[in-house]
């Protein structure tokens, strides 16, 4: 029975591929043009894709729960690795926070396109009358959202375990959001590539970490600036760098995504 169901699943998929490639020969340039129906329609399409990912996650709950537990484990492991005491807490804390976010994020990103590919969802998505960039933004926002949920849980834990005052939280949230966007912008693009490689998610960290070093560095600097209560002028250039990275890499990934998924 299992075999039969898999063949029936395969057949329409190959047909879709053919139909899609015929349609695809016409206008790859059109993908970057202004989508028909204006910004509101475009946003609706993006949100529909986010909604699909959220619905799938709510039904399985497998990704976010794994990410949360993993990031908590990383915070605990750092405690053993660095022998955290009160005097070195503030120097180590930002690094611990960002390593746990980055590793948990990597876990989420590496799964992001595997579900799509395994169940033929990606072909369906590409067939829909939606701009390729809408798929990119949908997937990216979904990833930001999932990593965000993890952060909502680990940030209070971090504040408690590292003995920080809760008044730092609002600023921390801002930095965390910007850092997550930068991380997910390239991460989504690379994740779409990594699923097509032989080793699948193994390659993603190797591709992603060297590229997102500026994000990690500026986020860690900003976080330690917040924890040490430095004046804003001392760390403002890191904020500029972080925002610039976000903008540049969202734009680049947005333009390059259609080359990754075309086929």
């Amino acid at each position: 029975m299992n075999c039969a169901s898999s063949t029936t699943a395969m057949l329409p998929q190959t047909e879709l591929n053919v139909a899609e490639s015929v349609e695809d020969t016409a206008p790859p340039a059109q993908a970057t043009a202004v989508p028909p129906g204006g910004i509101a329609a475009y946003a609706r399409k993006v949100l529909a894709i986010v909604g699909k990912d959220v619905a799938a996650e709510i039904r399985t709950k497998e990704m976010i729960s794994a990410m949360v537990v993993f990031s908590l484990l990383i915070i605990l492991i750092f405690n053993f690795a660095f022998d955290l005491r009160a005097e070195n807490l503030n120097t180590v804390a930002p690094g611990v926070l960002w390593v746990s976010i980055a590793f948990a994020g990597m876990l989420g990103l590496s799964r992001s396109f595997i579900l799509e590919l395994d169940r033929g969802v990606l072909d369906g998505l590409l067939l829909t009358p939606v701009d390729r960039s809408a798929i990119y933004f949908g997937k990216m926002l979904g990833n930001v959202l999932f990593i965000g949920v993890v952060e909502v849980i680990i940030l209070p834990v971090f504040v408690i375990l590292f003995n920080q005052s809760a008044s730092a939280l609002p600023l921390l949230v801002g930095v965390v959001v910007l850092g997550t966007i930068g991380f997910a912008s390239v991460g989504t693009l690379f994740s779409a590539m990594a699923v097509h490689t032989r080793a699948r998610e193994v390659l993603l960290p190797i591709m992603l970490f060297p590229v997102v070093i500026p994000v990690m560095l500026s986020a860690v600097r900003l976080t330690s600036g917040i924890l040490d209560r430095l004046p804003f002028e001392d760390v403002s250039h890191w904020l500029v760098l972080l925002i610039a990275f976000d903008a540049i890499f969202i734009a680049a990934s947005f333009m390059l995504f259609e080359y990754v998924v075309e086929e």
Binding site: F190, P210, V211, I213, P214, A244, A252, S253, L256, Y259
Partner: peptide
């Protein structure tokens, strides 16, 4: 090609950050 473009873009930003 996609990866090479992103990697080349990241080098100057990395440079500035470091």
């Amino acid at each position: 090609a996609v990866y090479a473009i992103i990697a080349a873009m990241s080098i100057p930003i990395n440079w500035m950050a470091i």
